[in-house]
Design a protein around this nucleic acid. Sequence first.
DNA 1: GGCTGCCAACTGCTATGGCAGTTGTCCATG
DNA 2: CATGGACAACTGCCATAGCAGTTGGCAGCC
Lengths: 237, 237
Amino acid sequence: MAAAKTARGRIAPLAEEDTLSLGERAYRRLRESIVQGVLPAGHKISERSLAVELGISAQPVREALRRLEQDGMVVTLPRRGTVVAEVGPAQLGELGRIRAALEGVATALAAERMDAGSIAAIAAILKRMQAGTEARDTDALDEANEEFHALIHRATGNLFLMRSLGSLRAYDNLGRHRAVGSTPRDLPKALAEHKGIVAALKKRDPALAEARMRHHVLRSLVTNGVLPPPPRKERRT
Amino acid sequence: MAAAKTARGRIAPLAEEDTLSLGERAYRRLRESIVQGVLPAGHKISERSLAVELGISAQPVREALRRLEQDGMVVTLPRRGTVVAEVGPAQLGELGRIRAALEGVATALAAERMDAGSIAAIAAILKRMQAGTEARDTDALDEANEEFHALIHRATGNLFLMRSLGSLRAYDNLGRHRAVGSTPRDLPKALAEHKGIVAALKKRDPALAEARMRHHVLRSLVTNGVLPPPPRKERRT
DNA sequence: GGCTGCCAACTGCTATGGCAGTTGTCCATG
DNA sequence: CATGGACAACTGCCATAGCAGTTGGCAGCC
């Protein structure tokens, strides 16, 4: 991604071409730096020093830190300092389960209101996934997977959902970043699940789409080592 | 929550309500004002004028507005203004479904890690609910209900969950505020559901607890008129 | 040596001022 | 009367400066 490759704990100054507000740019940059591991957990962050590193004032930095705090990515003790939050394996698992639930409702909503154009678009993405799976092109698959979920999120038209899932997917990247190299994902299985989800979307069956999406996310978390294998069979109400 | 029990000669810690940052106080105040209807949807908010109303600087106000924007309660068009977000019935329903899902995972997590003390506490709350239901004391019931869910949220120990559910419950209050007076809730049914949830917690059955909690929230949303009655029977995967 | 108290160097937090866009109004012009 | 353009009054956004706690270390005393 754009996050400049720098020494551990150091942040490169912001480019000034963009039209986004400095606070917004600082927010994204910091979030990226955290999930990429540039700012490791427990690392102390000073509003002032970070401001001079980014080449901006302390104000937008502070604003970004407040938002990151609301995301749970940093914690700040008043008048004492701000620290990158520790996210242990247990918490990563919890966040994964939360994400699975939210992706589920997102898919349910999408199944209800998705227009024909979006369905065609997601079908196209599915085709790319098929090709990527046969070619074992994990990079292309990752990109397609990103678009796949992003499209569903956008289809819901729900801002809260999109924001929350955005934060949670960031954590997901962090988890994958930790399990470095050891991602022996079961590609065909993921493809089949994606197909099933798209089928449910086409059938406009919210409950089915939700169940399949949730199962898909949970299973992928298990194969990624974020979650332990399910202890038992599923439970019925 | 009176003065902490301390040994002779020891001094109890100071209350910390007084020392909250202005930004934090502005955030809470604004959020409260929005969900209470004091600041109706579409109302324009100016950082400066709001600052003088609150008797503080524009900075903390801006900070609070950014956080509210992340919550989805206000939207701000750059260099044009900030307005409190429109939350129509449809969106309210979506947020309700999201909340149901999150309350579900929260309860699942709680079922896994709740200590004996918390279980005893929630059993006590349940007893109060029983009494309140028999006495038709809706005020006491609302209070107990609040504590009931708050206790579960806290039991998860998950900050992200607690923050998200905090925002979503605010929306819930807003929804109830709109359906003024017309809350003919089915009290005994809610009580039975709460009992079932506590039973699942005691059995430490996460899947069961989750399903029951989710169903409970969804049903209560339906009886409150936030969600339409379910169109069909539940679906199996 | 070990403890106490002070001081400088931090920290987050807030106030003030000013910049650059946006909008609405009012007057001059066709 | 209708139209267009400039000006004033907004807006959000950012930089600077200074306040008030917190911390760490170092001198001075027991």
